[in-house]
Amino acid sequence: MRITIDQDVCIGAGQCALTAPEVFTQDDDGFSALLPGREDGAGDPLVREAARACPVQAIKVADD
């Protein structure tokens, strides 16, 4: 699984960090970021739910 965050689209709503806190966080400016070493999601079942929860669809999840 590969996770990408479109930083140009992200509005910093934080739904990803609330939904999958083991994978997502917010950077110093309040925008979505992946936790170090979690770029592949490591099979976390909440990653896809976090992508769906994003109000602006800034998160994309692709199967490798």
Rank of each mutant, 00 (worst) to 15 (best):
R2W: 03
R2P: 02
R2K: 14
R2N: 09
R2L: 11
I3T: 00
I3G: 00
I3W: 03
T4K: 06
T4Y: 01
T4E: 13
T4R: 12
I5M: 03
I5H: 02
I5V: 15
I5N: 01
D6V: 10
D6L: 10
Q7R: 15
Q7C: 05
Q7I: 06
Q7H: 13
V9I: 15
V9W: 02
V9F: 02
C10G: 04
C10L: 08
I11E: 14
I11H: 09
I11W: 07
G12K: 00
G12H: 01
A13E: 09
A13I: 00
G14W: 00
G14Y: 00
Q15I: 01
Q15F: 13
Q15E: 15
Q15C: 12
C16R: 00
C16D: 00
A17D: 05
A17T: 05
A17Q: 08
L18Q: 15
L18K: 15
T19K: 09
T19R: 12
A20D: 10
P21C: 04
E22T: 15
V23A: 11
F24C: 10
T25G: 14
T25W: 06
Q26K: 14
Q26T: 14
D27Q: 12
D27P: 09
D27W: 08
D27M: 07
D28W: 11
D28L: 13
D29V: 07
D29Y: 08
G30A: 03
F31C: 09
F31M: 13
S32L: 08
A33C: 07
A33R: 02
A33W: 04
L34R: 01
L34V: 06
L34I: 05
L35R: 15
L35W: 08
L35Q: 14
L35N: 07
P36I: 11
G37T: 04
G37K: 01
G37M: 03
R38S: 13
E39H: 11
E39N: 06
D40L: 11
D40Q: 04
G41V: 03
A42L: 13
A42C: 09
A42W: 02
A42T: 08
G43L: 03
G43F: 04
D44P: 06
D44Y: 03
D44L: 06
D44N: 15
P45K: 08
P45E: 12
P45C: 10
L46C: 05
L46K: 12
L46S: 10
L46T: 13
V47D: 02
V47C: 08
V47Y: 09
R48W: 03
R48Q: 12
R48H: 06
E49Q: 13
E49A: 13
A51H: 00
A51K: 00
R52Y: 05
R52K: 13
R52C: 00
A53T: 04
A53E: 13
A53S: 14
C54S: 07
C54R: 04
C54G: 06
P55Y: 08
P55S: 09
V56S: 03
V56G: 09
V56N: 07
Q57S: 14
Q57W: 04
A58D: 05
K60R: 15
V61E: 01
V61I: 03
V61P: 00
A62E: 14
A62K: 11
D63P: 05
D63F: 05
D63I: 12
D63C: 07
D64W: 07
